[in-house]
Amino acid sequence: MTRVDKELAYLREHKGAVIERWHAKIRKAYPGYYEGASVLLETERYFEYLISLHIPKEQHEILSKAPEWAKRLVEHNIPLHHILRSHHYWRNAMNEVLAQNRELDPVSTLLLLNELESRMQLYEETVCHIFLELTNARMTEQERAITQLHDDRLNLIGKMAASMAHEIRNPLTSIKGFLKLIRESMTHEDDSKIYRYLNVVENEFENIHMQITGLLSFSKKRVIEEPFVHVTPRQLLDSVVSLLNPRFLNENVNLTVELLEGELLTIQKVAVQQVISNVINNGLDALSRIKHDKEMGIRGYMRNDAYVIEFSNNGPAIAPEIQLTLFEPFVTDKVEGTGLGLAICKTIMQKNNGGISFISADDRTTFTLTFQINEQSEA
């Protein structure tokens, strides 16, 4: 007999007690996961592998079944830590059974446990390696499916945007033409109220035009590609602020504007104005949730080779759970929001050799538009 034969024979004789102890521990830790005859069958096979010391662990047939077992774990969404905990419970169960016999030699018992530990580790490493490979493959496939779904949704939006532009721009063009005719046919003696009404209608017309331009950034087949033009920051901002001025007044928001003059931006003016309109409106929406003094500041300045425009407000912070994905489509914390506004803004800014970013804290949120002066070119 070898030095551990007696201990090994005792362990084999008490196979049922070992398995029962392991099963009790694993069921207590993870109720509902390890029930049924198939689990017990696999458990008996594993026990035979452990005590078959006459078969080198690397050559045991159970290793060929490790992929099947790992696949089953993945299919049943069993976490990796279950495998590690199971190893621990096997060690405890065998220790407890061997400790019941005080006639066993402690040194031989320790030698046996070391050999059993070595076999457990090999099987655990094999299963964990395959488990991780299968899990990574599944995650890659899921990411591919999510990406495809995401792309399909964007393509659908693009088709809807192109269709909408075709259906809406034609009547808008007619409306704009008739507004021009009305204005040209009026005399100075006509009611000044009519002039004011015409100004309101024309301003709203421009707002609708900007909204359509923004949505078209998702369309691969743009109806009209807007040209790049040279504008100053003041020219870019003034028309947007004037359109939104009634909202600033109605909602008691104090607006301050500080712009560094003298720079020229080469951009798609209407598209970028849509970005500015979206950012300002989002800020006003945030300010509507506070009762104290409402403030919004717009600041423009040069930073290295870029012109930067900051839009800050003292409203509440953006929800932390959406900050990392705020510029992705369909991400929003508004009840009736589509989650497309900032995604459109990001697309427009990228097309205009710029960028959009933000920082948000409890007392202030700032969105930053960056325009690369040296990289801008006419298209």
Score class of each variant (00 low, 15 high):
residue 2 T to M: 10
residue 4 V to F: 05
residue 7 E to N: 06
residue 8 L to K: 10
residue 10 Y to Q: 08
residue 16 G to S: 14
residue 16 G to K: 15
residue 23 H to E: 10
residue 23 H to A: 14
residue 24 A to Q: 13
residue 25 K to L: 15
residue 25 K to H: 10
residue 28 K to L: 12
residue 30 Y to W: 11
residue 32 G to C: 05
residue 35 E to D: 12
residue 39 V to G: 01
residue 40 L to N: 13
residue 42 E to A: 14
residue 45 R to L: 14
residue 48 E to L: 10
residue 49 Y to S: 04
residue 49 Y to D: 04
residue 52 S to V: 04
residue 56 P to K: 10
residue 57 K to V: 09
residue 65 K to L: 15
residue 66 A to G: 06
residue 70 A to I: 04
residue 71 K to F: 01
residue 73 L to R: 12
residue 75 E to F: 00
residue 76 H to A: 12
residue 77 N to C: 07
residue 79 P to K: 10
residue 83 I to M: 10
residue 89 Y to D: 06
residue 90 W to G: 01
residue 95 N to G: 13
residue 95 N to K: 13
residue 97 V to Q: 04
residue 101 N to H: 09
residue 101 N to M: 01
residue 105 D to N: 15
residue 110 L to I: 00
residue 113 L to H: 02
residue 114 N to P: 00
residue 115 E to I: 09
residue 123 Y to C: 12
residue 127 V to R: 07
residue 128 C to Q: 14
residue 129 H to Q: 15
residue 130 I to Y: 09
residue 131 F to I: 06
residue 133 E to P: 01
residue 134 L to Y: 07
residue 135 T to K: 15
residue 138 R to C: 03
residue 139 M to V: 14
residue 139 M to P: 00
residue 140 T to S: 14
residue 145 A to H: 08
residue 150 H to T: 02
residue 151 D to V: 00
residue 151 D to A: 11
residue 152 D to E: 14
residue 154 L to A: 02
residue 155 N to E: 11
residue 159 K to T: 04
residue 160 M to E: 09
residue 163 S to P: 00
residue 164 M to W: 10
residue 165 A to G: 07
residue 167 E to D: 13
residue 168 I to W: 06
residue 169 R to L: 13
residue 177 G to S: 14
residue 181 L to I: 04
residue 190 D to L: 01
residue 190 D to Q: 07
residue 197 Y to N: 11
residue 209 H to R: 14
residue 213 T to P: 00
residue 219 S to R: 04
residue 219 S to D: 11
residue 220 K to V: 09
residue 224 I to S: 09
residue 224 I to E: 13
residue 225 E to C: 06
residue 226 E to V: 02
residue 234 R to A: 15
residue 234 R to V: 12
residue 240 V to C: 05
residue 242 S to D: 15
residue 242 S to E: 15
residue 247 R to Q: 14
residue 248 F to D: 06
residue 248 F to A: 08
residue 249 L to A: 11
residue 251 E to K: 10
residue 253 V to G: 06
residue 254 N to T: 15
residue 257 V to M: 11
residue 258 E to Y: 08
residue 261 E to W: 02
residue 267 I to S: 03
residue 271 A to M: 08
residue 271 A to I: 05
residue 272 V to Q: 04
residue 272 V to P: 03
residue 273 Q to P: 01
residue 276 I to Q: 04
residue 276 I to E: 03
residue 278 N to Y: 01
residue 279 V to P: 02
residue 279 V to D: 03
residue 282 N to G: 11
residue 284 L to D: 07
residue 297 G to D: 10
residue 299 R to M: 06
residue 305 D to W: 01
residue 310 E to N: 10
residue 316 P to S: 07
residue 318 I to K: 08
residue 320 P to L: 07
residue 321 E to Q: 13
residue 321 E to T: 09
residue 324 L to D: 13
residue 325 T to L: 09
residue 327 F to R: 09
residue 328 E to Q: 15
residue 329 P to W: 03
residue 331 V to Y: 05
residue 332 T to F: 05
residue 335 V to K: 13
residue 338 T to S: 15
residue 339 G to F: 08
residue 341 G to T: 09
residue 342 L to P: 02
residue 344 I to Q: 10
residue 345 C to A: 11
residue 346 K to W: 07
residue 347 T to F: 01
residue 348 I to E: 02
residue 349 M to C: 02
residue 349 M to D: 03
residue 351 K to R: 15
residue 351 K to L: 14
residue 358 F to E: 04
residue 358 F to P: 03
residue 359 I to M: 12
residue 365 T to I: 05
residue 365 T to N: 07
residue 368 T to L: 01
residue 369 L to P: 02
residue 373 I to P: 01
residue 375 E to P: 00
residue 378 E to F: 10
residue 379 A to W: 00
